[in-house]
Nucleic acid binder design. Structure first.
Lengths: 347, 347
DNA sequence: AGAAACCTTGGAACTGGTTCCACACCCTAA
DNA sequence: TTAGGGTGTGGAACCAGTTCCAAGGTTTCT
């Protein structure tokens, strides 16, 4: 491989500005005082020579890479939901001059921890200071990360099968209160026969959403009804196929809470095929506030998740962890927001 | 900030194994010969002390960061389209032990090059070897990147306002042939009255798509009809609002080629509101093959763009550039693929 | 006036790998 | 026996920054 041509070094700048190397370093880091006059001369020389300090060299001494890795696990592609979390991480990080590395990983929940092949970034040492874990997170991956002593924060909503004594930093959003508020809103609009279209309730996050719905129904002495299926092909598909089961119930439901926007989309599409109208024939609310929600007609009332804020909070928490390695672990749960659009009818 | 505890260094390993530092380095890089006996003793010592070499230190000497930056410019959020390009970059890069940094940038096309504030990664030097530019790329950004002598490859479809003599490495997909094939397909199915719903034709990529459509019409001696609007609110919105203009034409069009899937979505939604059916009342094809295409009912026939492949090719080309800095610039245009689904009727 | 405190500055030593030169050693050929 | 070539190894010099100590100058205090 051809070697990159030598760039201007701090010593060349020092010589050109007729000062010592230490002074250049002080100007660059604006740490200790340098006289206005000298500083100006140095800055001028830096500009003139087009000098840009070498990041690697500094990092050795600082013992900090000022870089974190966003690791997306077990996702076939960078889904809009996670893309926006990454966006949040990056925008917060860049304000603090921290860099964000993107890496992906595929692994099975049954692979023993020491046999998980981590991406190249995590095999080297000193490249990154910490890790933000997103995607589906199983205990074996967590154990592997702990074994290489890499500080990390996990996006908690897709954590699966973790025992309660497993302690680590987490950031997530509030599944339970999201559906609770959505359900209360429907009840406030006069609905009494409300079903929950869950998809596959073995996913812990859908389980939590169901529990929120159930709580809303219980506190109003209403009967909770769960529409589920074992491992459906896709959420949209599940929505399409379950509309029949919903409408044939006696008494007929006036509203449905969907486990997520994709299910809501499937329900809506199927209704449309049968020339039925939302919200005239049935009211509908979703969860996640994905792009699809706005594409529906009328646009879907749904529970908004602040994806960028999740990313930002992950980054913030990771930096705290790096500053205070012995701090106790925390689990931050961010609130969701119910967005009223056009799919709920006032009875 | 608390300092990370000192890790084992190569000198400590050398002392413990009673060899010189050079020997440790040789064992690690398995470059020149070391006797079996010595190698084994060194490896054993490395294991015993849990030594992992510091990546930063090596990079200074190698003058290679083994890291590239994916820079997304002027995008409010990490759009699924670009997310998948990033995914392609990462998956190809990680196979070659290269790392991918994600950064975002907002700038105006009218800011003078030297006043563009590059993200932190590009202000330092030696952190990354090269750059992959995505998002909307104007000449001033390009000039700025060139001024810091950073090798780069641009995703070319969203390059705007570049003069022809401006030379740089580019990877893109084939707008022109995409709509040309789509148009030929429609004509093959018996359609003669076909309109092109472009949105805003001042975008060069929509212009190229229009030209492809026009070519298809011309070669069959058919009249090209352009439906456009000056800077519409959004593509979906444009689609919704222009259906009236399309259907009122005499003779009435039997098919529409949309400038992209969002426009097609808008057209479809509006048709649905007026209780019209695709493809019975009008046939429809899109461009991009975004997720929305599959959500439509029937699913949209559209021109597929291989997003991951674009990312992969960008990375591949960037690595070639790094190996051969004086190589002549190239512009690779990847083929698109027409995906037949349910929105075209055989007349 | 002299001492003390403070600011500014130069530059040697340092970080943790890699590279390369010198040298010891062994084997083979003249 | 000596020259020549090859292999294996130690360690100094190196990369490009940061850090810290000492020194010189200036200001303030007694």
């Amino acid at each position: 491989m051809e070697v990159v041509p030598r760039k201007t070094t701090i010593r060349e700048v020092a010589q050109a500005a007729a000062v010592g190397v230490g002074t250049i370093s002080r100007v660059l880091n604006s740490s200790s005082q340098v006289s206005r006059e000298t500083r100006e001369r140095v800055l001028e020389t830096i500009r003139r020579l087009g000098f840009r300090p070498n990041a690697q060299a500094r990092r050795i001494l600082k013992r900090r890479a000022e870089m974190v890795c966003f690791l997306l696990s077990n996702r076939d592609f960078l889904h809009p939901f996670h893309a926006r979390i990454l966006q949040g991480v990056e925008s917060y990080a860049s304000g603090l001059k921290q860099h964000v590395l993107f890496a992906a990983l595929h692994y099975s929940p049954r692979t023993p921890p020491d046999r998980i092949d981590l991406p190249p970034v995590l095999q080297e040492h000193g490249l990154i200071d910490g890790l933000i874990l997103a995607g589906t997170i199983y205990p074996n991956l967590l154990r592997k990360i702990e074994s290489i002593h890499m500080p990390f924060v996990a996006f908690s909503n897709n954590v699966v099968g973790m025992s309660d004594e497993q302690q680590f930093d987490q950031v997530g959003f509030d599944d339970f209160n999201g559906t609770l508020h959505a359900t209360r809103y429907l009840i406030g609009k006069g609905h009494r026969q409300i079903v929950f279209a869950a998809g596959d309730i073995s996913y812990p996050w859908l389980r939590r959403r169901f529990e929120g719905y159930r709580q809303g129904m219980r506190e109003n002495k209403l009967k909770a009804v769960l529409i589920a299926a074992r491992s459906p092909q896709s959420f949209v598909d599940f929505g399409q196929k379950s509309i029949g089961r919903i409408l044939s119930r006696q008494p007929r439901p006036t509203a449905a809470v969907a486990g997520n926007d994709e299910i809501a989309y499937g329900l809506w599409r199927s209704l449309q095929r049968h020339a039925m109208k939302v919200p005239d024939d049935i009211s509908l609310v979703g969860f996640d506030d994905r792009e699809e929600a706005l594409l529906m007609d009328p646009p879907l009332s749904t529970v908004r998740v602040h994806k960028e804020e999740i990313g930002e909070t992950c980054m913030k928490m990771l930096l705290e962890r790096l500053h205070h390695p012995r701090m106790t672990f925390s689990h931050r749960i961010l609130p969701t927001e119910f967005v009223i659009r056009g799919t709920v009818r006032h009875l």
